[in-house]
Amino acid sequence: MKISFILPGFSRYPVGGYKIAFEYANRLANHGYDVQLIFFNNNHWKKLGLLQRGFVYLATQYEPKWFTLNKNIKKISYCDKEFKRKIPTDIAVATAVETAYPTEKICPEAHKMYLIQDFENWNVSNEYLYSTYKLGFKNIVIAKWLKKVVDKYSLQPSIYIRNPLNITQYQVHNSIEKRDQYTIGMLYHSAPYKGSTETFSSLCKLKDRFPELKIIMFGTCDPPKNLPTWVKYYKNASQQQTIDIYNKISIFISGSIKEGFGLTGLEAMACGAALVTTDYDGAKEYAVNKVNSLMVPVKDWKSLREKVAYLIVNDSVRKEIAKKGVQTARKFSWSEAYRRFADTILDINNDFGD
């Protein structure tokens, strides 16, 4: 059986949604399926004109360097704006709103799935986004709150498969008890809905109260200008680097305003960092206030900062929350998610008598 994942262009830098799609692709390939990744590169490097196709083809073959793909997985660069080029496949999996309609056009004979990882209305209207839910694909959602939204428009109930975590990689390597309680970590992102700018600015205000404070940040965008020496920033950190960061910090802070799931919060928990987060919908998939995390209302930057201060002062509470976080993260293994994803593929084929 040939299974194709359609992605919105190759990615040179780590992206959470790509990571989930790549992991599903790897596991399917490991189990003997014929898997290919189709990168919808129409919007990549358009300024190159006639040279675009050649350059994006080469980039697609070399990337992603930040994720190790099964060598049997084929990568295809797609640059046909009129969708005349058809891709033969048995199963086609759209992975983002930009790929929903293209998937319908370039894989017309395939049974189709739609992996929905957020309410992706950043570059399209809500009406357009809703229309992708109505295409008749087998919709898969990664969060309960997304299922409620998608099922209002989907032709059939969506399938809920929460985002998993590779718990064999994201583990505690540095004792929770021995960590420096003044070392705080966070993801830095330029998108406003991540709330990174406000979170970082608020967190920096703790320096006067705690002179020992150190911040470690990572992300794919450029860091804030004029970073003080007590702040370290890792641009385009590899998976292993982020695991090392999670294991150095005592507290991970997330000020997201809106996210489908918020994978970094769960990753940090798995590695023994106590989570302090806003209560956006995605975080509720794994975070429970005063049990395995501390949660504050969205955009309440002052409360977010004060919860970090509370854990710095009350180190025993920090340790307890961190340990509960590790226990929670261990329940998000890939084995169950993959089983349900693979079963969905088989169910689709059975439904059509294949």
Score class of each variant (00 low, 15 high):
6 I>P: 00
10 F>W: 05
11 S>Q: 10
12 R>G: 14
13 Y>K: 08
19 K>V: 00
20 I>E: 00
20 I>M: 12
22 F>I: 02
23 E>F: 00
28 L>I: 02
31 H>G: 02
33 Y>F: 11
34 D>V: 09
35 V>T: 08
35 V>E: 09
36 Q>Y: 03
37 L>I: 10
39 F>Y: 14
45 W>T: 04
46 K>T: 14
49 G>D: 10
51 L>M: 12
52 Q>S: 11
55 F>L: 15
55 F>R: 05
59 A>E: 15
59 A>N: 08
74 K>Q: 15
75 K>G: 01
76 I>F: 06
77 S>R: 06
79 C>Y: 04
79 C>W: 00
83 F>Q: 03
85 R>D: 03
90 D>F: 03
93 V>E: 05
94 A>C: 07
97 V>R: 01
98 E>C: 01
98 E>M: 11
99 T>D: 01
99 T>L: 01
99 T>P: 00
100 A>W: 02
102 P>L: 03
108 P>H: 13
109 E>R: 14
112 K>W: 00
113 M>A: 14
115 L>Y: 11
120 E>R: 05
131 S>G: 05
131 S>H: 12
132 T>W: 00
140 I>S: 01
142 I>L: 13
146 L>E: 13
148 K>I: 01
148 K>N: 12
149 V>E: 15
155 L>I: 11
156 Q>M: 14
156 Q>N: 11
157 P>N: 12
162 R>Q: 15
166 N>W: 00
166 N>H: 13
172 V>G: 06
178 K>N: 09
178 K>I: 04
182 Y>Q: 07
184 I>H: 08
193 Y>G: 03
195 G>L: 10
199 T>A: 13
203 L>P: 01
205 K>L: 13
206 L>E: 06
211 P>R: 09
212 E>P: 09
217 M>I: 06
219 G>E: 14
219 G>Y: 14
222 D>I: 09
223 P>R: 04
225 K>S: 11
227 L>G: 02
229 T>G: 11
231 V>I: 15
231 V>C: 01
234 Y>P: 15
237 A>P: 04
240 Q>L: 05
241 Q>L: 07
242 T>F: 14
244 D>S: 13
244 D>V: 01
245 I>R: 00
246 Y>D: 02
247 N>T: 02
248 K>L: 11
252 F>T: 03
258 K>F: 12
270 A>L: 02
270 A>E: 00
272 G>Y: 02
272 G>D: 07
273 A>S: 09
276 V>P: 10
276 V>C: 11
277 T>G: 04
283 A>P: 14
287 A>N: 06
288 V>G: 02
288 V>L: 09
289 N>C: 13
290 K>A: 08
295 M>S: 09
308 V>G: 10
309 A>R: 03
310 Y>W: 14
313 V>F: 06
317 V>D: 10
319 K>R: 11
321 I>R: 15
322 A>W: 02
325 G>F: 05
328 T>F: 08
328 T>D: 07
332 F>S: 05
338 Y>D: 03
341 F>Y: 11
342 A>P: 08
345 I>V: 15
348 I>T: 11
352 F>Q: 13
353 G>F: 04
354 D>E: 09
